[in-house]
Amino acid sequence: MSAVTQHRPGAGRSAATDEPLLVVENLVVEYPGKGFRAPPFQALKGVSLSIRAGETVGLVGESGSGKTTLGRAVLGLAPVTGGEIRYAGDRISGINKKQRRALSDDLQVVFQDPYTSLNPAMTVNDILTEPLLVAGVSRTDANKRVRDLLDQVKLPQDAGQRLPREFSGGQRQRIAIARALSRDPKVIVCDEPVSALDLSNQARVLDLFIEIQERTGVAYLFITHDLSVVRHISHRVAVMYHGEIVESGDAGAVTSTPEHPYTQRLLLAAPVPDPVRQLQRRADRQRLATQLAAQDEQAGAGVGGDEAHSTDPSREA
């Protein structure tokens, strides 16, 4: 996408050639507490993570774990109160609105809900040209680019004239992906992009994500609650629990032989689509639960306790 001029925040690029593309270091995000003089709610308690160019890092956890907050913090949509986020060597947490807008060339997003992430009153063409026009691309070039984008996400060429509500969930998510791709970003934050989709659409959209990555070399921060999705798409995986990363590593290892009890619980809780193996997995899960309960009794309270009662004020699904 040559028509878009490359804005880079700051000038610290040369010093950062060794560093991964996106680095999150000891990130703390706090929301004001509910009620007068209530202590702030810590959605993220010092989280560190890095993503290299062309890599998918899966972020998995349950609702309230802070995974969505981490994605929103990277995008500048959540209040960072401690630690920092660096992109290409430059600090991007706590930058002003103008610098943030310049970042939109490199950092993009695909949200969970394809029903609310597209403005229902705008045609697909308007939705897709908007980020281009903002970047100073001419309307003719933008229209040309839209045709190319629709092709990339395998939507028909006439899709541009239609409204989002005329499309199915899977197709809408393709539109959202096309919007994210429109300016050739380097990193896309994908916040549960397939959890609202049907099984068959889910597999197709995931494969589209992988294909785009292999072609363009874009990096994904892929947020999901589904271990099997994360295994399918990620190179590396980080598991979040109560605002912290409890385990991280190679995708195959974390999703098959997890070490942290929470990850084990997560893995065993997901039912396998096979009655025979599910019987086994259920037995394993119940055994682990008894073990953990016994541990809890000894230790007073543990991490693998009852279901989360904490509520996350951020936009967690």
Partner: peptide, 18 residues
């Protein structure tokens, strides 16, 4: 303003006025 598409517009680099 809490709708995701407004967030998406912000990430796309749109100014507040726009």
């Amino acid at each position: 303003r809490e709708e995701l598409y407004v967030d998406a517009a912000r990430v796309s680099g749109l100014s507040d006025a726009r």
